[in-house]
Design a protein around this nucleic acid. Structure first.
Length: 112
DNA sequence: AGCCTGACCTAGG
DNA sequence: TCCTAGGCCAGGC
């Protein structure tokens, strides 16, 4: 029921549209979907992202300050960080230092 | 139905 | 940027 919800599907769609080497935030996705207060639900959707039919680059979704809050939900301890670093992110102490350059806002890029 | 939890966000200090 | 408090939408029990 959860992953079949339109909201969850939309979250996965937007997440897949994140360009290689760019990241976005839970709040930005929620705002793009028209539910600014549903940022936590985006996180829940990411938690269930493995149930999606297609691959969802959940590692490109971080919180607003660039903190890798979902790292523990990935395999191993440094997988999320490695994936991001492999895409050009500079991470220090679980936080994306060049967040400003990496940030990709679906509202501005895809349109509201 | 009610309470707790969560990969969050904003506001105020 | 850090800390605290409140709010947010869904799920689990």
């Amino acid at each position: 029921m959860t992953q079949n919800s339109g909201f969850f599907q939309s979250v996965y769609e937007v997440t897949r549209r994140i360009p290689h080497g760019r990241v976005t935030t839970y709040g930005a996705i929620a705002r793009y979907l028209g539910s600014p207060g549903a940022a936590r639900m985006v996180g829940w959707a990411m938690n269930q992202s493995h149930t999606a039919s297609q691959f969802v680059p959940a590692h490109r979704v971080v919180n607003r300050v660039g903190l890798l809050t979902g790292q523990h939900h990935f395999e191993g301890t440094g997988l999320m960080q490695e994936l991001l670093e492999n895409e050009g992110a500079v991470i220090k102490d679980n936080r994306i230092v060049n967040m400003k350059e990496m940030f990709w806002d679906p509202v501005e890029e895809l349109g509201l």
